[in-house]
Simulated assay, not measured.
Amino acid sequence: MNSDSGRPPIPLWLLASPYVLSFAALMFTSRTVRKAMFLPIASLVIRITTIGMPAGACPIASALVLQRFTMCDLLLLTDSHAELHLVGQSAPSAGSLPLFARAKWVVHLLTSPRLIGWTNEPTTGALPPRPTETSRMRFAATQIAYLALHLLTMNVLGISMRLSPSFSRDGPGLAGGGWGRRSVDVLQYYGVVWSAISIPHRVAVLVLLGTGRWMPCDLPPMFAPLGNAYTLRRFWGNMHHQTLRRVVTSHANFVSQKLLHFPRQDRFSACVQLYTAFFESGAIHHWAEYMIMPLDNFGLLACGSMKFFLLQAAGIHCEDIMISAARRMGWRVNAESARSRRALRVIGCIYVWQWFTWCVPINVDPPVRIGMIENGLRVTIIQDLCKFVGKGCYIPT
Rank of each mutant, 00 (worst) to 15 (best):
P8Q: 12
W13M: 03
W13S: 12
W13P: 03
S22W: 00
A24H: 02
A25G: 00
V33S: 03
M37N: 00
I41C: 08
L44A: 02
I51T: 11
A57V: 02
C58S: 05
R68L: 08
M71F: 07
L84P: 05
V87P: 04
A91T: 06
L99H: 12
L99Y: 12
F100M: 04
V107K: 09
I116R: 06
W118C: 02
T123I: 04
T124H: 07
P131S: 10
S135A: 14
S135N: 15
S135D: 15
A140T: 09
A140F: 13
A145H: 09
L151M: 14
V156S: 11
S160E: 02
L163H: 14
L163Q: 13
S168H: 07
L174T: 00
R182V: 00
D185Y: 02
V193L: 15
S195G: 12
S195P: 15
S198G: 15
L209F: 15
G212H: 15
L219E: 12
P220V: 08
P220E: 11
P225L: 14
L226E: 12
L226R: 13
N228V: 06
A229T: 11
L232K: 03
R234V: 15
F235R: 10
F235K: 06
V248E: 12
V248P: 04
H251T: 10
N253L: 04
F254L: 02
V255D: 12
H261M: 04
Q265L: 09
F268Q: 05
T276F: 12
F278G: 01
A283S: 09
H285M: 04
A288Y: 03
Y290V: 06
Y290D: 10
M291C: 08
M291Y: 10
M293Y: 07
L295N: 10
G299F: 13
L300W: 13
G304E: 05
Q312L: 08
G315N: 05
M322R: 08
S324K: 08
I347V: 11
Y351M: 05
T357A: 09
P361E: 00
V364G: 00
G371M: 00
E374Y: 00
N375M: 01
G376D: 00
T380N: 10
Q383G: 07
L385M: 05
C386W: 03
G390S: 03
K391E: 09
P396F: 04
